[in-house]
């Protein structure tokens, strides 16, 4: 009995002394941190993709709590998740329009081959020495720098061409930064019609190096419902994302080079081998 009592007493005494030391230390070296940051971090997707412009989700959460960034800056989070964060912070959040990446090139290896390339299989390396295997200066090099940068596996390399799967893309924009040809743009997810060409050269020059280039024939402009649905810039036509055409334009316009495509169909491989 005595042993038990002494043991208990000793343990209690030791505990008390140590607790006192830690308590004093905790007071002396106290760090103020906002517990909300951790909660918000947990609410975010945790992909750490950097699409919001901050270094990872924790950093973004800090910005939200400090009121520097709105919750809808996260391109990955679903609408509900964003609202949840906003509710927790006691602010209202507008739903942000979802964007997806589009690689503005449709020239696969079989459409635009130039010469064999024997070197590092990386777009950013290839542009430094002769620019890869394809004939077009403006087109996709096809060595998958964007696909490797994509944290969501949304980019596939098919026939030496980067193709974005719109259903997998969350629009974080990582691929936009790595493309040495500045081919990739973020477009509203609701728009399906895109011109898959980025070459400002003359139609004939483009046609010489690529079967699927936009030759600026304006068939799509004429077929569109209103005048400014397709924008003409020199020899290149692009979708007007502020006043986008309906998906049926692709069929109506019957683009002679199939540069005008639906993103969903393009991803599904519907245009392969149809170029003349």
């Amino acid at each position: 009995m005595t042993i038990i009592l002494v043991s208990l007493l000793f343990a209690a005494l030791l505990g008390a002394i140590l607790a006192l030391i830690i308590g004093v230390a905790a007071k002396a070296f106290a760090v103020e941190s906002d517990p909300r940051i951790e909660t918000v971090t947990d609410m975010l997707p945790g992909a750490n993709c950097g699409g919001c412009g901050y270094a990872g989700c924790a950093d973004f959460a800090k910005a939200i709590v400090e009121g520097v960034a709105p919750p809808n800056d996260c391109p990955v989070a679903s609408a509900e998740a964003t609202v949840r964060v906003a509710d927790y912070m006691g602010i209202t959040s507008e739903e942000k329009e979802k964007v997806v990446a589009v690689v503005r090139c449709s020239g696969g290896i079989s459409d635009t081959v130039r010469s064999p390339y024997n070197g590092v299989e990386d777009c950013r390396s290839a542009v430094l020495v002769a620019g890869g295997a394809k004939g077009c200066d403006y087109g996709c090099i096809g060595f998958a720098s964007c696909a490797r940068a994509c944290p969501f596996d949304a980019i596939e390399i098919r026939d030496g061409l980067a193709v974005v799967h719109p259903d997998l893309c969350v629009g974080c924009g990582k691929c936009v930064d790595v493309c040495p040809k500045d081919l990739i743009i973020l477009t509203p997810a609701a728009v399906d019609v895109h011109v898959y060409c980025n070459s400002p050269e003359k139609g004939a020059a483009k046609r010489k190096v690529c079967k699927t280039a936009c030759i600026g024939c304006r068939k799509c402009v004429k077929a569109s419902d209103s005048e400014d649905q397709m924008l003409i810039d020199g020899f290149l036509i692009a979708t007007n994302y502020n006043n986008p055409p309906l998906p049926d334009l692709v069929e109506k316009a019957a683009c002679p080079t199939t540069a005008l495509r639906l993103a969903t169909q393009h991803a599904a491989g519907a245009y392969e081998g149809v170029s003349k």
Binding site: G119, V120, D122, R124, S125, L128, V129
Partner: peptide, 13 residues
């Protein structure tokens, strides 16, 4: 190994 090309890349980056 394509050493020289790697260095060109590194220098550019």
């Amino acid at each position: 190994r394509p050493l020289n090309q790697h260095f060109k890349r590194a220098k550019a980056e």
